[in-house]
Amino acid sequence: MPTITFASSKGGCGKSTAAVLLASALAERSAVTLIDADPNQPIVRWSKRPGRPKNLAVVGGVAQDTLLDAIEDAEGKTPFVIVDLEGTANLLVSQALSRADLAIVPLKGSTLDAIEALKLVKFITQQERAYRRDIPYRLLFTQTPPAIRSRTLKAIEADLLGQGIPIFGTALNERDAYRAVFAIGGTLGTLSLDEVGGLEAARTNADRYVAEVVRALKALRSAA
């Protein structure tokens, strides 16, 4: 049922990684459609490599005039629809947000990234007014150091939470395994320990993130 949209106002903050990790994990127990609405088509490229879960359909090549059709078509076919967007705020992003049950805004733990994330939060609230509907969203810290939470990250997090902006408690760490998913193909489950280091830690981190997203979706569903 839920349509989850990944959006950010800048590129390189781990949107596609977060989208693929979520989609792959959900596909272990449900049918999932992953719509790649980024003109660079990173997820389509990933899906052409071996190891894509059978339960996970990847739809690429969508444009402004076909995105809503692609989303509605996918919503009718699979319980979970995930939309990955280009790192910008344009009409395509607006249209994707119009169908989002949850928007996830990934950001790195830097002040500059936080400023960009706030721009997107503002964009989401504008779309809420435009479409006259609530668009629930959560920020997701990505590429954070696994061992320690830096002072900068803590300060940014406190600042955002102080402004009432919801943030996932789990951050996606900086992990070679996440890059390996895109370089080799497949999922964290299909990668082998001799291919990439820190795989177990990456799996644990990704599982926590996915479980938190599912908890958020369940909470939103029961609130609706």
Partner: peptide, 27 residues
């Protein structure tokens, strides 16, 4: 292909309540 990690999450990862949406009437 399935990993044990998500199974450890218990009810958190029970996705049985989620179903495909009925398609809205297209104009």
């Amino acid at each position: 292909m399935s990993r044990s990690g998500l199974d450890d999450m218990g009810d958190d990862m029970d996705l049985s309540g989620f179903e495909a949406k009925s398609k809205p009437a297209t104009p």
